[in-house]
Amino acid sequence: MTINPGDTIPEATFRVKTQDGPKPITTAEVFDGKKVVLFGVPGAFTPTCTMNHLPGFLELNDEIRAKGVDTIAVVAVNDPFVMGAWQNATEAGDKILFLADGSADFVRAAGLDVDLSGAGLGVRSRRFSMIVDNGVVKSINIEEAPGQAEVSTARAILAQL
């Protein structure tokens, strides 16, 4: 079942790339006591994710944070090394927290997984964005197709804040 507004974020452990190597970070560490914008993508370095979806969150970062957002994070079913390389390649710096959900534990628990095996990608995250306040989903936007970024954009999130 897909997570909905009013639901609590499921417990999971992501990995983030640090200078000392991959580090676990729990959903509690990411969401508890914070207002978070989380967006999910089918994969780091994929065309729509890199050229259309992520750039908006970089461009509107200051405006989103001005609405009281503590953290902007992206999650993908990739390993922390790929997510770290994507963070570097996009020059995101510390503007966005890059969360690796390598085994799709979080996206499965949230009902946001999609089987893209037909395209050779395996289980991935659906493309989505959400606003989470202290671990509770306030709004969620899920794309119908993995190759489109329309309802889950930074501009759409900004309008909801």
Rank of each mutant, 00 (worst) to 15 (best):
Q148T: 15
A159C: 03
A110F: 04
N141D: 00
V82K: 03
S117K: 08
K17I: 07
D70G: 13
Q160F: 01
P42L: 09
T46F: 13
T90K: 13
D113K: 01
P10G: 06
A28G: 13
A109F: 14
W86L: 00
F39K: 14
G6Y: 11
F81C: 02
A159S: 15
T8R: 13
P55C: 14
R127V: 00
Q87F: 03
G6C: 12
D115V: 03
K34A: 11
T153D: 02
R155K: 15
F106D: 03
I3Y: 05
I142K: 02
I140D: 00
A159V: 01
R15N: 12
F57E: 03
D7W: 11
T48C: 13
L158T: 05
V75F: 04
F14M: 02
I3E: 05
A12F: 03
A100Y: 11
L58V: 08
Q87S: 15
H53P: 05
F45L: 10
I96F: 07
A119G: 14
N141A: 05
I72P: 07
V37P: 09
A73M: 05
F106G: 02
E11H: 13
P146K: 04
G111I: 09
V74P: 07
G118L: 13
D94T: 12
I131S: 09
A73I: 02
D20I: 03
I140M: 00
E11F: 12
A159W: 01
S139C: 01
I25F: 05
I131D: 04
A159M: 10
I64Y: 09
L38A: 09
A119C: 10
I9V: 14
P55S: 14
E11I: 09
S129W: 06
T50I: 01
W86A: 01
K95C: 00
N134M: 12
G122V: 07
F106V: 07
S117Y: 13
G120W: 10
L158K: 11
V37S: 09
L54I: 12
N134R: 06
R124Q: 04
V132T: 10
V75K: 03
R126H: 00
A104M: 07
G120E: 07
P47I: 04
L97Y: 06
T48R: 07
P47E: 11
I9Y: 01
V151F: 00
E150Q: 06
T8P: 00
D32Q: 14
I25K: 09
L116S: 03
M51Q: 15
G33R: 11
Q19Y: 10
N4L: 15
L99S: 08
A104C: 05
D94Y: 11
D115H: 11
